[in-house]
Structure formats: C-alpha cells, structure tokens
C-alpha cells in the first residue's frame, strides 16, 4: 500500500549548518520520511528535502508517546565512541572509550546517561552499544 508520511510542525526557526540539512521557519509543516535514532529526521517540505533536528518538530496527530521508550533505570551499557565536552549544565563531559549506562533514549538524540553516580545528557550519535561496566 501507499506509504503515509507523518506530518510534523516546526516549533521554532532553524538555520541549517550543513548542506544535507533543511532550514525551518516556525509553523512549517513537514513530512517525516526517516527518523534516525541520533535525533536527525529526514523531512520534506514542498520540493525541499533534508535533515532536521527532531527537537524542533512536534507531531500534528497528538503526542508521540508511543514512539518514545520509557526510562530504563537499570541502564543499558554503552561505550563512548567520541569525546564530547558539555556545553549546557545538564550535559556530561566524557572521553572516547568511557563506559556508561543509558537510562532514557529520547527522540531528540540527546540521551540521559549515567556515569558512576552522575547523570546527564549526551549525544546518542557518540555512543555505541555494548561493553562492560567499569568498576
């Protein structure tokens, strides 16, 4: 059958920072073609196509609760694939090779993770599944 694309509305203006992205104006209605786990969604708007941050989109058909996983407080072990230095207060700074636990996989690509006793946000695209918890 035909593929029915989900329509989302831009909640704020977005300036693109690379060629494969698509700029948005608040209120733009986009069709989502592909949802990447890392928080970039491939969208189309009229004759334009490109990647858009999921955090800038809200669903037209009510809340997206069905898609978002519940937090898993037990944690799921991941390894840090790429270092990142926190910019916001609620983010974590980690080094490549660190082992952490993912507690909540958010659709915007910023996952809640735990390292030792500290929790914070970290980019999902810099994490790789698997590994042993450091003790």
């Amino acid at each position: 059958g035909p593929i029915v694309l989900q329509t989302y509305r831009a909640i704020a203006d977005y300036e693109k920072s690379s060629t494969t992205e698509m700029a948005l104006k608040a209120g733009d209605m986009v069709d989502v073609v592909e949802k990447s786990e890392n928080g970039w969604w491939f969208c189309q708007l009229k004759n334009k196509r490109g990647w858009v941050p999921a955090a800038y989109l809200e669903p037209m058909d009510g809340p997206d609760e069905s898609e978002e996983q519940e937090p898993n407080y037990a944690g799921e072990v991941y390894k840090v694939q790429k270092s990142y230095t926190a910019v916001e207060e609620d983010e974590l700074t980690l080094k490549e090779g660190d082992t952490i636990e993912v507690i909540h996989k958010l659709l915007d690509g910023w996952w809640v993770i735990r390292k030792d006793e500290t929790t914070g946000y970290y980019p999902a695209m810099y994490l790789q599944k698997g590994g042993e918890v450091d003790t």
């Binding site: 494969t20 592909e34 970039w40 955090a55 690509g109």
Partner: peptide, 22 residues
C-alpha cells in the same frame, strides 16, 4: 537512498519553544 544524517549532534531543543504538553 538518502544521504547520511549530519555527523554532528543535532541541537538541543530550542529554549523558548519547548514542545507543548497536552
């Protein structure tokens, strides 16, 4: 086939336009 997503993390949600809760 689509191009690969950008290699940088997406921006955090816009501060003054949080997703509305129902």
């Amino acid at each position: 086939t689509f191009k690969q997503p950008p290699s940088n993390p997406p921006p955090r949600p816009p501060p003054d336009a949080r997703k509305k809760q129902p």
